[in-house]
């Protein structure tokens, strides 16, 4: 898990002003699931991503609350409509205080 927290973002190669753009993002993360011992869940500090935020030029456009019933190495895709060029920033927060960020520059063709 040396790569834990590595964020990959894919955007279309050519974007025109006013297009609705589909962004695909992935973060390397174990997303621990609840362990059980004798049928009872074990209370420990499970490591998983519980919050994802997407901001464009500092303005939040999407926020997600995620649980451990999202797969390991969580993948999210969403759309957004850029009206001006700028920086898309995706932030993943996990329950151990980890903060993983990825950015993608949006330029108009």
């Amino acid at each position: 898990m040396a790569e834990i927290g590595k964020v990959r973002i894919r955007i279309p190669s050519s974007i025109k002003r006013g297009d609705v753009v589909r962004v695909r993002s992935l973060v390397i993360h174990p997303m621990e699931i609840v362990q059980r011992r004798d049928g009872k869940p074990v209370d420990k500090n499970y490591l998983f991503i519980h919050k994802v935020t997407v901001a464009y030029n500092g303005r939040e456009i999407l926020e997600a609350e995620t649980t451990q019933s999202i797969s390991e190495n969580p993948f999210f895709s969403f759309t957004f409509k850029p009206t001006e060029p700028g920086m898309l920033r995706i932030t993943f927060l996990d329950t151990h205080g980890g903060k993983y960020e990825g950015t993608a520059e949006i330029k108009f063709a």
Binding site: V20, L62, A64, T66, I70, S77, F80, K81
Partner: peptide, 19 residues
């Protein structure tokens, strides 16, 4: 999961991987 969307997204479309 719960996704909170805003009008800036242009379309209400979300993808994820579930367990």
């Amino acid at each position: 999961a719960r996704f909170s969307l805003t009008p800036d997204m242009g379309a209400a479309s979300i993808g994820a991987n579930l367990r």
